[in-house]
Design a protein around this nucleic acid. Structure first.
Lengths: 147, 147
DNA sequence: TTATTTAGTTATCAAATGATAATAAAGAGG
DNA sequence: CCTCTTTATTATCATTTGATAACTAAATAA
């Protein structure tokens, strides 16, 4: 299999991932936050603590817009800002208790849909899936170093 | 491995997929279209021909908003609308020649970044990746039937 | 010490998006 | 025929987002 064909497999694959992710997360988020805000919270909950700069890079936002969205989330008591003791320009963002609660609720909805999706999978299927997730995360969707 | 742990692996995995997809597609799209419009074009190019209703479902948009974005794309001569001969309410959307050209350009950028990402992978790695993509697409990210 | 760079904020305005209501036209079922 | 449903459009308005400029404060380099 040549690399060009592999690329087209990847395109089709990521398209499927996005479609299924969409399906699993549809309406799972609270109505009190926007999609952008949910994306930020999801990123924080997976990678916390994170700095505002990391959020820019990852979510492809500008600093001013990230800052704005973070203050909205902060006003809603969903996140906490902690100052770095070493470099006082930096801050670390984590979910507050309310934020954790909101994300747990969303994840519970998503998980129940996920369980339904794999309810007919055999033990071997589940092992295959687990192994495939690891292979791809290690060999293809790894984090590249920042420049 | 229990299903709950598998779910958290999935969350982490989709997060990685989104991050890498972001990285690969960053600035790959033409400046003359918005992100939403690019998403629609990408979906069309992978699944064409599609109906406006399918675009709603997949992109989580409302019909009026889909209709609006499609007319913008149509005004830019990036897509073509074809009426269904059987059910005259329906229409099929495909990329126009200009649309194909724009997406080919974007895909070329993305592909070159992808090739760079896997340049150090061995033949065995590539086989593993290919196999893992197939396993996941078949057993986890398959299309569920519509209700 | 004095630049210069880095991290983040605030303000502002145009543009894009989301949501809703009203409409039209065609198919489906009685 | 009449009603209900599906598919899509147009119009409208509030909200969100993107982009930019101007700014503060802290770290770093000269």
């Amino acid at each position: 299999m040549d690399k060009n064909a592999l690329f087209y497999k990847l395109v089709s694959f990521t398209s499927s991932v996005h479609r299924v992710t969409q399906e699993l997360t549809k309406n799972a988020k609270s109505h009190s936050i926007s999609q952008t805000q949910y994306n930020i919270l999801e990123y924080i909950s997976v990678s916390q603590p994170v700095t505002p700069s990391e959020i820019n890079d990852c979510q492809n936002m500008s600093m001013p817009n990230t800052s704005r969205e973070l203050s909205k989330l902060s006003n809603k008591n969903l996140i906490e800002k902690i100052n770095d003791t070493e470099d006082r320009r930096k801050q670390y963002i984590r979910l507050s208790n309310d934020g954790e609660a909101m994300m747990n609720e969303a994840f519970a909805t998503i998980e129940s849909r996920f369980l339904k999706r794999i309810e007919n999978a055999s033990i071997e299927d589940l092992d295959d899936i687990e192994h495939a997730l690891e292979v791809l995360q290690t060999k293809l969707f790894y984090s590249s170093d920042k420049n």
